[in-house]
Amino acid sequence: MAARKLPSLNALRAFEASARHCSFTLAAQELHVTQGAVSHQIKALEEELGLPLFERLPNQLRLTRAGQDYLVAIRDAFDRIERATGHLRTPAGRQRLAISCSPNFSSKWLVPRLGEFTAQHPHLELRLEQSERHANFVRDDIDVAIRYGVGPWPELECLRLGDECLVPVCSPSLPAMRSAHELAAATLLHVHDQRGWSDWFLAQGLAAPDKASILFNHESASIDAALAGQGVALARSSLVALALRQRTLIAPFAPGPALAEAYWMICPRNGKDEEKLALFADWLRRSVEADRQFRAAGYPV
């Protein structure tokens, strides 16, 4: 087999860093070399390829069209090398499972239950990344992601984690609430805006109370506030399932109808390491089913 005709690895690293920073100087700082060395490596790479990769403008460095196309391929190659290296560095006898999920799902559903999963599968070494952006399984070195939305999505294996609904929850330390009018007198905890509670009261044939309230930008924070007795949160059922089972929260009113959106486990089709993904999927199914059965039996009020 003939030797591969590849450019210098150092030149490719210089190109990728320069393209990412749009600066030879910043690339040099990252790579711990001089700016002149980076410029020389890029020039040699361009000469080898026979075309320019950058437009060198006054006080600006910009990729050419060829440079943009080349960057996509180089980044993908580097991502694959980094992923393969990470797998080799996993201790002998263990497999690594990298999971990406939102901060809300991570803190209120997954993390409190992870001990159960690791006890059942001690050969798996878990890495958890909190993220709400679209999962790039190669670039981010992720095996499986959990995302909220209206699935399924093409080109991905998708497992719907049960139905989702909104349920009013509060600490059992708060005074008992038996009607929507009594609830309107309580402190309401909102997420992003007041639309959720407005829709809930509208469904009861009432207008939402016009008074001061507390507004959060993360649902997990509103649930924490409810746990602390600061008011009543309108939360997704999965995120408060464990707290309701442990009776650190109660549900003074019935859950709302099923939402179109739900949490989904997603991963690439025909991916590697199907066994560890199957183990995780099976554990998710059983855990979600336990939550569903508890909800069907009636939440504590």
Rank of each mutant, 00 (worst) to 15 (best):
E16M: 09
A19F: 11
A19R: 06
A19T: 02
R20L: 13
H21S: 12
C22M: 14
C22E: 14
S23C: 05
F24N: 07
F24K: 10
L26Q: 15
A27K: 05
A28R: 08
Q29C: 12
E30Y: 06
L31G: 04
V33Q: 05
Q35R: 02
A37S: 10
V38A: 00
V38N: 00
S39K: 03
H40T: 14
H40Q: 15
I42L: 10
I42C: 02
I42M: 02
K43V: 00
L45N: 05
L45M: 07
L45W: 06
E46W: 02
E47Y: 15
G50W: 06
L51Q: 01
L53Y: 00
L53E: 00
E55C: 10
E55M: 13
R56S: 02
N59P: 08
N59H: 11
Q60M: 15
L61C: 03
L61I: 08
R62Q: 11
T64S: 06
R65V: 09
R65Y: 07
A66R: 13
A66W: 03
A66D: 14
D69L: 14
Y70G: 03
L71S: 03
V72K: 13
V72R: 13
A73E: 12
R75P: 07
A77I: 03
D79H: 15
R83E: 08
T85E: 15
G86M: 02
L88S: 08
L88A: 11
R89C: 11
R89N: 14
A92P: 14
A92N: 03
G93V: 04
R94E: 15
R94N: 12
Q95H: 13
Q95T: 09
R96C: 04
R96W: 01
L97P: 02
L97N: 01
I99C: 01
S102L: 05
S102I: 06
S102C: 07
S102H: 04
P103R: 10
N104Y: 01
N104F: 13
N104I: 07
S107H: 07
K108E: 15
W109I: 08
W109K: 15
L110H: 05
P112A: 04
P112Q: 11
R113T: 10
L114A: 01
F117K: 05
T118Y: 04
A119S: 10
A119D: 14
A119M: 09
Q120V: 11
H121G: 07
H121Q: 12
P122C: 04
P122K: 08
E125L: 13
L126W: 08
L126E: 03
R127I: 10
S131H: 12
H134S: 15
N136R: 15
F137K: 02
V138N: 11
R139D: 08
D141L: 01
D143E: 05
D143A: 02
V144E: 03
I146E: 03
I146R: 09
I146P: 04
R147Q: 11
Y148M: 07
Y148F: 13
V150M: 12
G151D: 09
P152R: 09
P152C: 14
W153G: 00
W153S: 10
P154Y: 02
E155L: 13
L159W: 11
